[in-house]
Design a protein around this nucleic acid. Sequence first.
DNA 1: TAGGCCATCTGGTCCT
DNA 2: AGGACCAGATGGCCTA
Length: 343
Amino acid sequence: MLTRGDMLTLPFEEPHMMCEPRFGANYPRESLPDSLQQQERQQRPTARSDPEMMREAEDDLSDREEDEREDDQDENGLQKKRGPRKKRPGKEQVDRAKLRRQEANARERSRMHGLNAALESLRKVVPCYSKTQKLSKIETLRLAKNYIWALSETLSAGKRPDLLAFVQTLCKGLSQPTTNLVAGCLQLNARNFLTDHNGEVMFSGRSPYEAMYSYTSSDMNSPPGHSGGALDTGSKPFRHYSYSSAYETYFENPSPDSGSPHFDGQLSPPMNFNGIFSLKHDDPQDYGKSSHYGVRYCGAPGRSALAPNSMYRVSPEARFPYDLHVRSQSFQTQGEVNGSYHN
DNA sequence: TAGGCCATCTGGTCCT
DNA sequence: AGGACCAGATGGCCTA
């Protein structure tokens, strides 16, 4: 099946093929390959019935007249000194300009392909990745921004996040289909999420967390640019609590008929619900050379600094909490969740 | 069929 | 001069 990314992609070596549909519009005639130009000349009717041809002829005429006139008078109509006559571009210059344009087009395509490749690699590290159901460019960027924000909050709080709050942060500003997609990727019941008219994500049901902790899922900062939403009610960081019962509540029934999009592609698990934020991706060489993800957030203002690659070297009290508590706490469930990602 | 998303072309601007 | 970057225009594909 052809993906969106594959469509309209033509080989660089055949720029005229890509230009062809545009000839009828505003593509410059001089850009036609010589053979096509010749062919077009031969096909021109002698009668001046084609409006485009008439326009061309008028342009030619007016150009010539302007060339002649511009030597006689300046813009004020005063007699102008005769200088070197402006030379109309010769065939060589036209060909050269044509070539430069084609080269520029190829570079532009290449540049955009690079941009798309970077976007694709970004898709693979945000919390929802499917080869068959790709996030759009804009949604990928939004989700990435939310993800960075949520992880930064988690790091600054130094505690395990509230699951719902985390997911709600992820989904902020995303379209309803993308929200469903993310919820589906994370195996949450997408029906529990609503998007209001402002695009803010709300949780429609009563969270079991709220029942257990009398703590609302809105107790966290909102990402920049998302003020005033349903989640913007406080500055408290993610709350530290045990996931075990909540996990059961949310994942014992993974809601296969939740209305979420169908996922038959690869899902990447940048986050695990039992609190371990591991990043899985197809090409770890991209990241293995760099420092651990957590280190990248340490330079943020207000964040406590860690030595490079030193997430596990700092004192236990200051350590990223997930490895301290959660691995032993719910190792089995982590495996279950991971298993679903690796389908 | 309208709207969203996308790839490509194109000309302008800025920088080296 | 030439390359990188950008935004507008255009047209194709897909989906609700």
